[in-house]
């Protein structure tokens, strides 16, 4: 759902430091009613710190936060009934069943017993967890835990939902289901603030995206506008034997109109504002002693835009996050 004109989240000059490290610096943005807004950045960029400040779990050093017109930098409690929060870890109560967890979370928002029981049953069915409703949360799989945590975040039907890395560390089928649920929630009118390190997820779901690096927003734009940056660019990716070392120098010497880089997995990536002729390029590489296994034209994605704007290799960002998650889970 595209956003309306009224901003429901307004952030100005937000800053936060921990132990001498500037976690968030001078962050400004607005999220409009009904919008699905993506917040993209590498590990440690300040995404979770920003969410914590928006939801009242952290106090900003400076700046203002407005949630539906309420000044949350001064009175965070006053706006919490408008928010649902899904943290980056599934933090429900392991000793309670799925149903009890949802019912308890509803009670925290003052829902009466009948309403929260009805809503819990409805959400369990909607998230495909009705068969596990009476099982303890501790016995749930990672995907089920994630789904129940999202259900707990929307038990009180909040108009604004904060989702921190909702699909990290879960199986493909569950991630697809969660993405569908997020899109449905947004289509039903919920304003969603989503942080993710899966760029393709943000591209698929979000209307607008902010790129945050080292606590600073480096770009905010509609996905359509960001994707327009890929127009007029021609990219060819080549898989070669023996690694790509030295080959870019050979290309630069013979075909200076081409920009050549090596990718994280050892391929060569060539780009130009003019169409790239593959035949001469392959011959040049073979003359340089490489064996070319595959050469393919690549349609640029939001990931390429992210790399160009932030200078951060998106694959490395995802691997870093996955390693951190695996380490935390070990």
């Amino acid at each position: 759902m595209s956003g309306g004109s009224e901003p429901v989240i307004q952030v100005e000059g937000l800053a936060k430091h921990f132990d001498g490290v500037q976690a968030v610096a001078d962050v400004d943005f607005e999220v409009r009613e009904g919008e699905l807004f993506g917040f993209l950045g590498p590990n440690g960029a300040g995404k979770t710190t920003t969410i914590n400040m928006l939801t009242g779990l952290a106090r900003p050093d400076s700046g203002t936060i407005g949630i539906a017109g309420i000044d949350c930098s001064k009175k965070p409690k006053a706006a919490q009934h408008l928010m649902g929060v899904v943290p980056d870890e599934s933090n429900l109560y392991p000793e309670l069943s799925g149903f009890e967890n949802l019912s308890f979370c509803g009670a925290l928002y003052g829902m009466d017993r009948r309403d929260r029981r009805e809503r819990a049953g409805e959400l369990l069915e909607r998230f495909g967890l009705d068969a596990a409703a009476e099982r303890k949360f501790a016995g749930y799989s990672k995907g089920m835990k994630r789904k129940l945590t999202i259900a707990a975040g929307i038990i009180h039907s909040p108009p604004i939902l904060f989702l921190d890395e909702p699909t990290t560390g879960i199986d493909v089928a569950s991630a697809r289901q969660i993405r569908r649920l997020i899109a449905d929630l947004n289509a039903a009118g919920t304003t969603i603030f989503l942080t993710t390190h899966y760029i393709e997820e943000a591209e698929r779901l979000c209307g607008r995206i902010a790129f945050i690096v080292e606590g600073r927003i480096v770009r905010i734009d509609a996905v359509g506008n960001l994707m327009r940056l890929t127009e007029g660019r021609h990219v060819v990716r080549l898989s070669v034997s023996g690694g790509a070392a030295g080959l870019c120098e050979a290309i630069a010497a013979e075909m200076p109109h081409l920009a050549c880089t090596t990718t994280g997995d050892g391929d060569i990536r060539v780009e130009s504002t003019e169409p790239v002729r593959v035949g001469p390029l392959v011959r040049l590489l073979e003359d340089s002693g490489a064996e070319v296994f595959e050469a393919r034209r690549v349609r640029e994605s939001l990931e390429d835009v992210f790399v160009r704007i932030t200078g951060i290799e998106a694959g490395a960002m995802k691997q870093e996050k996955d390693r951190a998650k695996a380490g935390a889970g070990a």
Binding site: G56, L57, K77, A78, Q80, V85, P87, E89, Y93, Y109
Partner: peptide, 14 residues
């Protein structure tokens, strides 16, 4: 420690 306390801190209650 297990972050479930955050749920309580996020609830709109004093």
């Amino acid at each position: 420690k297990h972050r479930s306390f955050e749920r309580l801190l996020l609830a709109p209650i004093p």
